[in-house]
Amino acid sequence: MKTPSAFYQPLAIGAPLPFRELPISLERMIHFVPPHVEKMRAKVPDLINKVDVVLGNLEDAIPADAKTDARNGFIQLAKDNDFGSTGLWTRVNCLNSPWFLDDLLKIVPAVGDKLDVVMLPKVEGPWDVHYLDQLLAQLEAKSGLARPIMIHAILETAEGVKNVEAIAAASPRMHGMSLGPADLAASRGMKTTRVGGGHPDYAVLADPEETGNARTAYQQDLWHYTVGKMVDACLSYGLKPFYGPFGDFSDAQACESQFRNAFLMGCLGAWSLHPTQIDIAKKVFSPDPAEVAFAKKILDAMPDGTGAVMIDGKMQDDATWKQAKVIVDLAELVSSKDSELAEIYGL
């Protein structure tokens, strides 16, 4: 582990200084684009105005014989577009793949000045982050970049979840983490083929009734423990936690429910793999207007955040002031990009 005095020093001569604090940015949905498909690249200019993050996907779901085309396609879409306040990310191939090194060696020199985040799959421990950290610093120095590229880790192995705190603390480049439920399920030996969401067999039963009626089963959340552990690790180190993919595009109701669980637990956004999921993520990860209005009441009644007041029959104190500030701060961030919601929030 680096000493505190060395933690924020660049890892290569000429590389930019790491961020002391993460840039403030709205990231309700990380929208995945397969960049080897020309018609999908053509939709990016329109997407930039609809999503918070455009991510060029180079890893899972990209066929082996299309990896080079996906990499080249991502470079092209980065060059062809002005992203403004919309984030530009890429999910590179995993470290032990034959494509990872070329992903970095080709992308950073070509479009590193536009790239905000590298999403690294299947992170098992801090050593994976250290390797990418050093490599990015060398490439930034060689390319003359003025701004560091951040790292976002996907938790999709049992070892990665076990080492989640060490991963969070591994580098000042760390942006945040996402849950990767499909690969994590395989790594754990979980008996499900679903990508995210609940499972009807993961349930608790209501108490038996004397009438002998069938007992009601209440489906539980397979990912509750992991999301909670990820959120705690991220927030302990000032990082951003995200829910990952929800694979059943036909079930918008279940997708919204899973996203909302993650939002309530502290996640700031989720992946959108299909256009229908963009609006779901926007709805869920933007605070409810009624919640914002009530939170503003608390802040107005307690300007210095101390003491206790009664509002609408409910006691509010220092702790609820902090809760209210989380809601209002998020509403202000959303308002900076979404004029329609800004009007609704009164911000």
Results as ranks from 00 to 15, higher is better:
residue 115 L to A: 10
residue 140 E to R: 00
residue 208 P to Y: 02
residue 161 V to E: 09
residue 24 I to N: 11
residue 180 G to C: 11
residue 143 S to P: 08
residue 24 I to P: 00
residue 179 L to Q: 04
residue 215 R to V: 07
residue 346 G to W: 08
residue 300 D to L: 14
residue 177 M to A: 14
residue 193 T to Q: 12
residue 201 D to C: 06
residue 81 N to I: 09
residue 140 E to F: 00
residue 14 G to C: 05
residue 167 I to C: 01
residue 196 G to M: 04
residue 20 R to Y: 03
residue 206 A to T: 11
residue 192 T to G: 07
residue 44 V to K: 04
residue 32 F to E: 11
residue 274 H to Y: 12
residue 73 G to R: 06
residue 118 V to P: 05
residue 18 P to C: 07
residue 9 Q to L: 12
residue 328 V to P: 07
residue 162 K to A: 13
residue 347 L to P: 00
residue 5 S to H: 10
residue 28 R to M: 11
residue 332 E to Y: 03
residue 243 Y to G: 00
residue 41 R to Y: 04
residue 186 A to Q: 13
residue 347 L to R: 08
residue 324 A to W: 09
residue 337 K to C: 09
residue 343 E to I: 02
residue 137 A to Q: 00
residue 173 R to L: 13
residue 287 P to N: 09
residue 282 K to V: 01
residue 198 G to F: 01
residue 299 L to D: 07
residue 284 V to R: 02
residue 120 L to P: 05
residue 279 D to W: 08
residue 3 T to M: 10
residue 310 M to P: 00
residue 222 L to K: 00
residue 204 V to D: 05
residue 250 S to Y: 09
residue 152 H to R: 05
residue 31 H to Y: 15
residue 95 L to R: 12
residue 256 E to C: 03
residue 158 A to M: 03
residue 165 E to F: 12
residue 160 G to T: 07
residue 137 A to W: 04
residue 64 A to H: 11
residue 334 V to P: 08
residue 301 A to M: 06
residue 44 V to L: 09
residue 289 P to C: 11
residue 156 E to M: 07
residue 181 P to G: 09
residue 178 S to I: 02
residue 79 K to Q: 13
residue 283 K to L: 12
residue 229 K to P: 01
residue 285 F to A: 09
residue 319 A to C: 01
residue 278 I to A: 11
residue 194 R to L: 13
residue 117 V to Y: 04
residue 32 F to M: 15
residue 90 T to F: 15
residue 90 T to Q: 07
residue 306 T to V: 13
residue 313 G to D: 13
residue 26 L to S: 14
residue 40 M to P: 01
residue 92 V to R: 03
residue 334 V to Q: 09
residue 239 L to E: 02
residue 246 F to G: 00
residue 340 E to W: 04
residue 116 D to A: 13
residue 264 L to I: 13
residue 196 G to F: 05
residue 325 K to F: 05
residue 152 H to V: 03
residue 342 A to G: 12
residue 1 M to D: 07
residue 225 Y to F: 15
residue 181 P to Y: 08
residue 287 P to L: 10
residue 313 G to T: 11
residue 269 G to W: 11
residue 298 I to V: 15
residue 42 A to T: 06
residue 264 L to K: 14
residue 22 L to I: 05
residue 182 A to F: 15
residue 342 A to C: 07
residue 89 W to A: 08
residue 9 Q to P: 00
residue 161 V to H: 04
residue 25 S to T: 14
residue 225 Y to V: 13
residue 239 L to A: 04
residue 11 L to M: 12
residue 121 P to C: 05
residue 141 A to M: 05
residue 151 I to D: 00
residue 280 I to D: 05
residue 145 L to Y: 07
